[in-house]
Design a protein around this nucleic acid. Structure first.
Lengths: 153, 153
DNA sequence: TATTGTTATACTCTATAACTATA
DNA sequence: TATAGTTATAGAGTATAACAATA
């Protein structure tokens, strides 16, 4: 038998009580989507997007990541990494450096300008995160971060 | 002064100890990306993607969502909803129904076939979620879900 | 005048294959 | 023979504007 359809009884969060709204896949997608559009809005003023920010942040970590490593870590195609680094390099924020132990690969390092840009970008991203997670207490944010780390690696 | 660059000391999770890897925006993006590609892999066998699954799930909730509501809730453009529903409708999984209270909008309802498809798809998604969150205990998964709900709405 | 669904279109993002230089 | 980076290109996803029907 076919259940009678409740004819759209208006109300803000009607669909938020649905089964889908309890599923981690959906919740992560939605939270990620909202979070990165928040961050992108802020980063736009610096002429950056989250992807550029991510590469810049990893360059500034002084781990000397290769493009291949950036590709794997950010789950972006190697050819996309090329484009992102081209833009950051033209802008004078990072440089491609020869890897002494494998001349095929290139290590991405920040310029002094890149470090300054990163510092400003990080503030913007932190502020966006603040807005995204406004409903959570500091302890809850830490717990969320901890659990996400377990899920993401 | 310029810090000396650690010349890529290999090792699996080098970049996972970086500052970026502690930021919620990044972690959510990465977890969401991995989660939905897991789900998409499984749903492919049913000829579905997460977006179709999501619409189908909401249709099966018997909340009688309008396309506009689906658009807002799934953070997808109204024109994308049109395409998704076209496909689900051609496939006989959902139908567009007139909204008695506003003849501009259309309520999306599942067919019996749509409900069966959803049942199978849900199993697939649950299995994918299981794999994605394998590192978390049941209690941790519940806590993650709870915190994500707070962040996502 | 504003809104829902629709269409068409452009834009961005992502994925694939082929090439080079190294290993 | 395999891998890192690069390039070109095609495919998927997203955003924008305009239109008809209805509010």
């Amino acid at each position: 038998m076919t259940a009678r359809i409740a004819p759209a009884e208006a109300g803000p969060g009607r669909l938020a009580q649905t089964g889908l709204a309890q599923e981690p896949v959906f919740l992560m997608a939605r939270a990620a989507s909202m979070g990165s559009s928040q961050a992108n809005r802020g980063l736009g003023d610096l002429g950056l997007k989250v992807r550029h920010y991510s590469v810049l942040a990893l360059a500034c970590s002084d781990e000397g990541p290769t493009q291949r490593e950036l590709s794997a870590f950010l789950v972006l195609d190697p050819s996309q990494i090329v484009a992102i680094i081209d833009e950051l390099e033209e802008r004078g924020a990072v440089q491609r450096q020869a890897d002494p132990r494998d001349r095929r690969s290139k290590i991405i390092v920040p310029t002094p300008e890149g470090r300054m840009l990163y510092a400003r970008a990080k503030e913007v991203v932190d502020a966006a995160t603040e807005r995204s997670l406004a409903a959570l207490s500091p302890a809850q944010r830490e717990e969320l971060t901890r659990l996400l780390r377990m899920a993401a690696f």
